[in-house]
Amino acid sequence: MSRTTLDLWVGFFVAIGIAALLFLALKVGSFSGVQMEQTYQLQAKFDNIGGLKVKGPVKSAGVVVGRVTDIRFDPDTYEAVVVLAIDSRFTFPKDTFASIYTSGLLGDQYVGLEPGGDERKLAAGDTVFKTQSAVVLEKLVSQFLFNKAAEGQDQK
């Protein structure tokens, strides 16, 4: 086999390899992890984080704006300290509300940020004070049953 034909085949091979990789990159996957190279850190304290995990998404208005980078337990206040890395393109007001939600009924948990109306913005290293813990399904169910039972007694 002469070298030119060989070059053609290897070139073809590499080209369809790159094409497949582009397909995987553009059509199959998303670059959400790669885009956020510039981030700043915020802290948020929760009574209960439920099933939140490190690398979980941080969303505002349903758009991913950051990631959970660390989860610690504060031995003084008995609270969970969640460190959030937020894309530095976005800033949030001081009175932003951080809550832990579940995507779908059984899906992964994520941190949702709801901006307030404060003029001052959260800076790197700040702590989000207004938080709402994860909804724990068992608690919800028992609360619901308790209420039902209470209703039943009232009607008697």
Binding site: L21, L24, A25, K27, V28, G29, S30, F31, S32, G33, V34
Partner: peptide, 19 residues
Amino acid sequence: FWSQMQASVEFGHDVWNGL
């Protein structure tokens, strides 16, 4: 089919680690 795939497949994690 495609949007669910895109939402949970991350290039830097899944595609890159496969490579």
